[in-house]
């Protein structure tokens, strides 16, 4: 295979380069948000520590495990399509979507708990950041699921093959980014004090 040397040390990451430019932009937003959280906390340490204790860390743990597992399932989906196994790829994608659903359900339960307690963006700085950050991430989970669902639909039609499966890798890259961001968000907002 002529492209073997290229495959060993490719110049570009898997998936469409355009999604990577988008991922960089997304990472930049989250980085600014995380840093803003950390530096605002500096001036309100007591407040942040106090209200961080009110969060449901069991729910956050379940969600972290769900996203990591979802990411792993997507890795399996990509591995399957690289062997040309469309149907297996589809099954792993559906499993990943299931993990996404689990995340959304758990997170929604957390939100409904907060809202019924009358907490909103203006309650205090901690909740402002907590709600903004997690909700922004929540929207990204939905966005990632929409992308994965689109990829799954095409996979079901047999739209991908050993030679042409950039679409699967593109969707996978975005989904991993959603996971990556949460892996920082979880300790920063729920645990570190």
């Amino acid at each position: 295979m002529a492209t073997l040397a290229q495959q060993d040390h490719p110049k570009y990451p898997p998936g469409d380069l355009a999604i990577w430019i988008f991922i960089l932009a997304e990472l930049a937003v989250f980085a600014i948000f995380f840093a803003s959280y950390a530096f605002t906390r500096m001036n309100h340490v007591e407040l942040f520590n106090q209200f961080q204790q009110q969060l449901d860390r069991d729910a956050a743990l379940i969600n972290t495990l769900a996203l990591i597992t979802g990411s792993y399932f997507v890795v399996r989906a990509v591995a399957a399509i690289r062997e040309g196994a469309s149907q297996i790829c589809l099954r792993w994608l559906l499993a990943a979507l299931g993990m996404g659903c689990l995340f959304l359900v758990v997170k929604s339960a957390e939100y409904s708990h907060h809202f019924s307690a009358g907490i909103n963006l203006s309650t205090n700085s901690f909740y402002m950041f907590y709600l903004s950050l997690t909700f922004f991430h929540f929207m990204h989970v939905i966005m990632g699921m929409v992308i994965l669902a689109a990829v799954a639909l095409k996979a079901r039609r047999g739209g991908y093959s050993i030679e042409d499966h950039t679409g699967v890798e593109t969707g996978a890259a975005y989904w991993h980014m959603v996971d990556l961001v949460w892996l920082i968000l979880f300790p920063l907002v729920y645990v570190m004090h």
Partner: peptide
């Protein structure tokens, strides 16, 4: 309007140069 807009407005509009750069 509520204070959180200072954060939301600052952070997201700080990204507005990106599409133009692209």
């Amino acid at each position: 309007v509520p204070e959180y807009w200072q954060w939301w407005g600052s952070i997201f509009s700080a990204l507005e140069p990106l599409p133009f750069l692209m």
